[in-house]
């Protein structure tokens, strides 16, 4: 990963999180917020090296959690796991095929949130946040009344209906991944130095003109 690649990757992660947060129309139309980071991770894992995968996971995950009610680090771990797994199997994946990109994008778009939810349910990340006298954990308990302490468990909103959300995410991931591939491939080709292929010149087979010695 050179400086240009790193810059493109970080800028892409920055813009991906911004568009996910700032665009409210997907939620209005589809009922879900469509995340661009999984598609970006698929591209990175299949195109670039491992440091790039880790870089995207740390930066992209950090940005994502900064705008979410998630504890910091949850998305980083899920992006890391998905990216590392895909990078590990990259030799088995024909990355130039659109169908492959679609399948990988759909799988990652579903797997990354599922992994984050698993981490949240596992309780590895503390959801406690400080407040002014009242912490967020005690606030719902107070609002629910002292008679209902069991209601005060902060838990993500997941039910059977989440499956339909998952299906929409899968479809969105399948559409977005080829687009991300097409866009970033072109961008990287335009901004990076062309690959210098090894020359076929061999000095011992050079035809030398002039008098024979």
């Amino acid at each position: 990963m050179n400086k240009v690649t790193a810059s493109i990757l970080l800028a892409a992660a920055y813009l991906a999180v911004y568009f996910t947060v700032a665009s409210t129309w997907p939620h209005r139309l589809l009922g879900v917020q469509v995340d661009l980071l999984p598609s970006l991770m698929v591209f990175t894992a299949l195109t670039l090296d491992l440091p790039a995968v880790f870089c995207l996971a740390v930066v992209g995950g950090g940005f994502f959690d900064a705008f979410s009610f998630n504890p910091l680090g949850v998305s980083t771990v899920s992006l890391l796991v998905a990216g590392y797994t895909l990078h590990f199997c990259r030799e088995l994946v024909v990355r130039n095929q659109v169908v492959t990109q679609m399948i990988c994008g759909a799988t990652a778009t579903l797997a990354i949130p599922a992994l984050s939810l698993l981490l949240l349910h596992a309780g590895l990340f503390e959801p406690a946040r400080p407040g002014n006298g009242l912490s967020l954990d005690t606030a719902p308990a107070l609002e629910a009344g002292a008679i209902l302490p069991s209601l005060a468990q902060p838990a993500p909103l997941v039910a059977l209906a989440s499956l339909s959300q998952g299906l929409i995410l899968v479809a969105a991931g399948a559409v977005l991944a080829p687009l991300v591939f097409a866009l970033l491939d072109r961008l990287m080709r335009a901004l990076e130095h062309p690959v210098a292929h090894p020359s076929w010149f061999r000095s011992d087979r050079e035809v030398k003109h002039g008098r024979y010695l």
């Binding site: 999180v17 996910t20 947060v21 700032a22 409210t24 939620h27 879900v32 917020q33 995340d35 994502f64 705008f67 979410s68 009610f69 998630n70 998305s75 949130p113 984050s116 939810l117 949240l120 946040r129 400080p130 407040g131 002014n132 009242l134 967020l136 606030a139 993500p156 909103l157 997941v158 989440s162 959300q165 995410l169």
Partner: peptide, 23 residues
């Protein structure tokens, strides 16, 4: 903006502690 994660229902507003916002 909205929360990018689909399992929370939250939004972001453009006022912070500088404008007197508190938890």
């Amino acid at each position: 903006g909205r929360d990018p994660a689909n399992w929370w229902r939250s939004i972001h507003i453009d006022r912070g502690s500088r404008d007197g916002m508190k938890i």
